[in-house]
Amino acid sequence: MTLERKVAEAFSMSDDAWIRHANPWSGWTRFLTALPLLIIAVWSRVWLGWWSLIPVAIAVFWIWLNPRIFPKPQSTNNWISKGVLGERVWLNRDQIPVPQHHHFMPNILNAISAFGGIVLVWGLIVLNIWITLLGFTLVTLGKLWYIDRMVWLYSDMKDVNQEYQSWLY
């Protein structure tokens, strides 16, 4: 089982949640709001003390809720939807192998995002805005490039499997 599938299961990502997350409104609102909300929520400990756990819980709830509240998209023939579909293909690579040229970069980009996450957490711990912004930038750029790679992966894999092909409409 891939690490990505374990994460998806931890967030209870059913087939229905995945297709709803392929709605561009879900993909973009999650990408644009989830991390900033979490950063602000954690930073709010300066003003709210332990009460900051409430905005942190709300931010985490938003991350979980987002793929579930939007309807099935009218079309998945757009960049962000294909990125979400590619993520599904990537997490399923132990069941349906992906082309060799897709093996390296997603792991590198996830490593960049993970390193950015460590920098971001450090910035939040020491309350340094510049370290926090550097970490945020690394996470965001790594994730954007990762999504772009997932679009490419989906484009390469959509005709390999009938289920994958059915996701594009």
Results as ranks from 00 to 15, higher is better:
Gly142Ser: 06
Asn78Ile: 04
Ser44Gly: 07
Asn161Lys: 02
Phe70Pro: 03
Leu120Met: 09
Thr29Arg: 07
Trp28Ala: 11
Leu53Val: 15
Thr140Phe: 11
Lys158Ser: 07
Leu48His: 01
Ile118His: 00
Tyr164Leu: 06
Gly142Gln: 03
Thr140Gln: 09
Gly142Cys: 03
Asn161Thr: 04
Asn77Phe: 13
Leu32Tyr: 10
Trp62His: 10
Leu134Ile: 15
Ala41Gly: 02
Pro24Lys: 10
His102Gly: 07
His101Leu: 11
Phe11Ala: 12
Arg45Gln: 03
Leu141Ala: 09
Ile39Pro: 04
Val42Cys: 06
Lys72Val: 10
Ser12Thr: 13
Ile39Ala: 02
His102Gln: 09
Trp51Leu: 15
Met105Pro: 01
Tyr169Gly: 15
Arg68Ser: 07
Ala111Asn: 01
Val139Cys: 10
Lys82Thr: 03
Trp79Ser: 05
Ala8Tyr: 11
Trp50Lys: 02
Val42Leu: 14
Ile80Pro: 00
Lys6Ile: 06
Trp90Val: 01
Trp64Cys: 12
Val89Gly: 01
Asp156Asn: 01
Leu138Asn: 11
Asp94Asn: 09
Gly142Arg: 08
Ile69Phe: 09
Leu3Met: 04
Glu4Asn: 04
Tyr154His: 05
Ile147Asp: 05
Pro36Trp: 04
Trp64Ser: 12
Gln95Trp: 04
Ser81Arg: 03
Asn110Asp: 08
Leu48Gln: 04
His101Met: 13
Lys82Phe: 07
Pro24Asp: 08
Ala59Gly: 02
Met105Trp: 10
Leu133Gln: 09
Met1Trp: 01
Phe31Arg: 07
Met157Asn: 01
Arg5Thr: 00
Val119Glu: 05
Lys143Tyr: 12
Gly49His: 09
Phe104Tyr: 14
Met1Ser: 02
Val56Lys: 07
Arg88Trp: 13
Ser52Met: 08
Leu32Ile: 05
Pro99Phe: 14
Ile63Val: 15
Tyr164Phe: 14
Trp47Lys: 13
His103Val: 07
Arg68His: 00
Asn110Leu: 14
Gly83Leu: 02
Trp43Glu: 11
Tyr169Pro: 15
Leu127Trp: 10
Ser12Ile: 14
Leu134Val: 11
Gly49Thr: 09
Ser26Gly: 12
Glu9Asp: 15
Ile58Met: 15
His102Arg: 07
Leu134Ser: 07
Val121Ala: 13
Leu153Val: 05
Val42Asp: 08
Asp148Ser: 13
Ala34Asp: 03
Ala41Arg: 02
Ile69Pro: 06
Pro97Thr: 13
Ile129Lys: 14
Ser166Ala: 14
Gly86Lys: 04
Ile147Thr: 11
Ile58Gln: 10
Ala8Cys: 10
His101Gly: 09
Pro106Asp: 05
Asp156Tyr: 02
Asn78Cys: 02
Ser12Asp: 14
Leu141Ser: 13
Leu153Ile: 01
Leu85Trp: 03
Asn78Pro: 04
Gln95Tyr: 00
Trp64His: 12
Ala41Cys: 03
Gln95Pro: 00
Trp64Arg: 13
His101Trp: 12
Arg30Asp: 10
Trp167Asn: 05
Ala17Ser: 07
Trp43Ile: 00
Gly83Met: 04
Asp159Gln: 09
Ser12Leu: 15
Phe104Val: 10
Pro97Gln: 11
Leu153Thr: 08
Gln74Phe: 03
Glu4Gln: 01
Ser75Tyr: 01
Asn78Arg: 07
Ala41Phe: 07
Met150Gly: 00
